[in-house]
Design a protein around this nucleic acid. Structure first.
Lengths: 241, 241
DNA sequence: CGTTCCCTTGACACCGATCAACTCTGGTGG
DNA sequence: CCACCAGAGTTGATCGGTGTCAAGGGAACG
């Protein structure tokens, strides 16, 4: 793939993930002015460290990333998955953050200069509104995760995560019927759901045995979507515009 | 207190909670144009239901509120506390939400017309930036809660919650040294930390017996701040500008 | 063809949920 | 002023969902 192609594509991905807030040519040019370069990360590599505020923002254009916090004991909590078109570190527009972002798969990102993005927002209100909505959608996802962690059984939680990923990927056109590529290891699912890898494995096996999902090498098929949503009490509204 | 006073105050509270993003006279006038009226809620009353998008936004000017989700089983997960100067339902600028907001104490809110706020943002980019930062700060808090729920022991979690509330109230000038009014019941703490009221009680008693906090009728005193922060692995950076 | 991730399985321990009383406090009405 | 009551906090006994530890299996990959 040609570099020029990728460069042309990041904005389209960004815009697509905004579902609703349409941006015009002006806004496009304004934010494209913040573009620095594309960059690649290998699976497992750290994309954003919890370091000073100076660095650029990272918009994922290919692959999956995850935001996470690491505790002193060494355990890690994944707080969100970042799919193409989304920012790894929108929060850095505001404050210093203790969160980091790592690459789940090979990841390609567009680097945008932070101050330039800020400037673009100040000049183009629609951009601010778009990013605000993006941040609010992330919030909605975080709240749903909170509910899962606080009040749902692990089985329900994993079911919910699968429903969410399915829906988000569907909207991004990355789903074929009820199947999709899912690069997460069971350990990463555990890190996202506040479980151990061992127990994650048992729960998934149970879902498999019950004929609800098929789960294999980087791939998920939801065999009983209805049933899965029921287990998870999943309502896709929170992902909507 | 006179109504005119309250009406003049809501913007100041809002601005104060933005720590960093200073707004000018223009922005002030713009958003004040969205003002509808003040409204009061009694302890326990629902402020925002998960209902259609049409209603106004609620900015808390006095008292504490909480955002929460209710599951089919009837259990409730509080996802955030709303202190004076903050919105109950910023998310409604974007999408439909299944979250509700309830009054923890007697609450007074300023009602702002949603479309008018949107309009104000479109006309005044600084407003959008300010709200974006506000949303990002909320995000940071949510992520921290996720880490607590996913990876910390309950004792650590409660310690963390107390540290967070202390710090947020301190910035709002509602703390005297290491003491502050804390209207939450143990059951509400339980709903926020994903515990049962019974176990919450035991954990709090333990913290008391260890001489770390004093906890009584609507009031908390942190006797060993250093120790409490250590238990919680608390770093206030995520609340900062 | 060995190494390295991942996934899988079993035994056991424990944190925190559940259930069921009981106490204490402040408020309310007679 | 007292009796009652509802809400909040406290306590004890028991149970179960998950974590922990330890070991083995299987597929990709150099």
């Amino acid at each position: 793939m040609i570099e020029a192609d990728l460069r042309r594509n990041w904005f389209d991905l960004f815009q697509a993930s905004l579902a609703g807030e349409k941006l015009g040519t002006e806004e496009r040019q304004a934010i494209e002015r913040a573009f620095l370069c594309m960059r690649s990360y290998r699976r497992g590599e750290t994309i954003v460290d919890h370091s000073p505020l100076s660095d650029p923002l990272h918009l994922v254009t290919r692959g999956w990333a995850a935001r996470a916090s690491v505790l002193e004991g060494g355990s890690r909590q994944i707080t969100d998955f970042v799919l193409p078109g989304e920012f790894c570190d929108l929060s850095r527009l505001g404050h210093r953050s203790s969160q980091m972002a790592v690459a789940i798969t090979t990841v390609r990102t567009a680097l945008l200069e932070r101050q330039a993005v800020r400037k673009a927002i100040e000049d183009h209100p629609k951009l601010g509104l778009a990013l605000l909505r993006m941040a609010l959608r992330e919030q909605a996802i975080l709240r749903e995760w909170l509910v899962c962690l606080g009040r749902r059984e692990k089985r329900e939680h994993i079911a919910h995560l699968l429903c969410e990923l399915h829906e988000r990927l569907r909207r991004a056109g990355m789903v074929c019927d009820h199947e999709f590529d899912m690069p997460l290891t069971q350990e990463q699912i555990a890190e996202a759901t506040g479980m151990t890898a061992v127990h994650t494995n048992r729960v998934i096996q149970r879902l498999r045995k019950d004929g609800i999902i098929s789960f294999g090498r980087q791939h998920v098929r939801i065999d009983q979507p209805q049933q899965l949503r029921k287990i998870a009490e999943f309502d896709a509204a929170y992902l909507s515009t």
